[in-house]
Amino acid sequence: MKIRPFDVEQWMNKYEVTPGVLNIAETCAASISIDDLVNLCEDPNVPPPIKTSTKLTYGAIRGSDALRGRLASLYSARAASPLTKDNILITPGAIAANYMALYALVGSGDHVICVHPTYQQLYAVPETLGAEVSLWKLKKERKYIPDVDELEALVKENTKVIIINNPNNPTGATIPRSVLIALTDFARPRNIIIFSDEVYRPLFHGISPVSDDFPPSLASLSYPRTIISGSMSKAYSLAGIRIGWLASRDPEITEAIASARDYTTISVSQLDDAVASYALSDSVLHSLLKRNIQLAKTNVEMLEEWVREHGWLCSWVKPTGGTTAFILFKKKGKPVDDIAFCVDVIEKTKVMFLPGSRCFGEDFEGFVRIGFVCETSVLKTALERLTGYVDEYMS
C-alpha cells in the first residue's frame, strides 16, 4: 500500500495551532460543550447524557441500541420502508466509517468513480487499495451538481462503486432529489454500489425542505445497493465525541463492513455513544439543528455580502448546504497563487483558510475553501481583517 499525503489534514495540522489564529478553515458547525447541549434540551425531565456510575466496559460492539435506533429513525423519515438499527454501524468518526466501507468493498481489479472536488479520502483510499479511480468532475457552470449523463463515458465493466458527497465539501453544493433518482436508475441495472458521504447532512440552508428537489438521504431511497456515512462532527457540532456511522439497506454490505470493522474497531466509547444518543433524542435534536441551520444562514449571508463587495477580486457559487464555500480569487484577471495567498494571509492577519490547488487538485488554482459556520463573531472579525489585507495587497 502506497499512501499519499492527506493534504487537507496536513494543512490543518500545520496552521490551526498558530497562536491567535482565526480559523475559518474549520468545517464543523461551531462546537458546543456538554453544558450547551444540555441547555438545548426541551424537556427538563430528561437526564443528562453522562452517568458517572456507568461501568466503562467496551459496551455495545456495533453501537448502542438507542443510538442506532435513533439514526435508523432519522433515515426512515422520508423512506418508503423504514430502516432498523441492524442497518446501522457506529464508528469512531466518519473518517473511520469511510475508510472501513472502502476497505471492505474495494480492492485490486475494481474500478471506482468519485465526484471531484471532494474530500481527498474518498478517492485516495480506493487508489491505495489498488482500485482504478475515475474522477466525475463537478463544474462551476452547473453549480457543482454532477451530470449523470457523463457516467456513460466513465463507467466500465468492473465499476464497483460510485462515490458522491452530499452536501459537497468544498463547494457546499447540494445534489437535488432528481439527480439522486437518476443516479440510482443508472446504477441499478449495473448492480453498482453507490456510496454517499453525508457528513454535512442535514445542514441545508439554501434549499427549502418543502421543495420537490430537496435532497433525501441516499439511505432513504429504494435502491438497496447504497451506503451512506454520517457524523456528529459537522452538522451536530460535536466533533470531540468522535462518533460516526454507516447505514445500508443491503445486509451483505453491512456484514462485509462489520467483518472488516473487527480488525480496526472493537467499539466506540460508551461515553461518546451516550452523548450522541442524547443529542439525537427528540428533546434535543430539533433545537440543536435549529441553532446550526440559523447560524449557517446568518453567516452565509455575511460571506455573500463580502464576496459581492469584492466582485472585482473573487467569485463563487453560493453554497446551499454544509459548512464550506469554494471561492475563486483572481488578480489582474488571472487566478492567484492560492497556496502563497493563504500563507501570506495567515502570516499577516492570522486568518486561516485552505488553498484549493494544494488540498483539492491542480484544477483549482486560485480557489480557497472557507468554513463559514463558525461563531458569527469569528467570521465577522476574519472578514474585516481580510478586507484590510486585500485592500492593501490585492488592489
Rank of each mutant, 00 (worst) to 15 (best):
Y389T: 14
N165Y: 11
A77Y: 00
S237K: 02
R4S: 07
I163H: 09
D282Y: 11
D110G: 04
G244Q: 08
D197G: 12
T254C: 15
P146S: 02
V148F: 01
K85T: 07
L37D: 01
L67I: 13
R62V: 14
I32H: 01
D36V: 08
G109E: 06
G93R: 05
K55M: 14
G322V: 14
G59L: 09
P216Q: 07
A276T: 03
R190D: 11
K140P: 15
V125E: 09
I194G: 01
S31I: 12
I241K: 00
I162T: 06
T128V: 08
G371I: 06
L37A: 00
I50W: 05
K380A: 07
I266G: 03
Q121H: 01
T320M: 01
E375H: 13
A29R: 10
R369P: 03
S108R: 07
G20E: 10
I339L: 15
S377A: 15
Y75V: 07
F326S: 13
E309A: 13
V199G: 02
E347L: 14
K51V: 04
V8S: 05
Q270E: 04
S237D: 03
I163Y: 09
K85D: 05
E347S: 05
T18W: 04
E16P: 09
I113W: 08
Y278Q: 01
A182W: 06
V300S: 10
S287Q: 03
E152L: 15
A72M: 02
E9N: 09
T349C: 10
T159S: 08
V179G: 05
L203F: 06
L89Q: 03
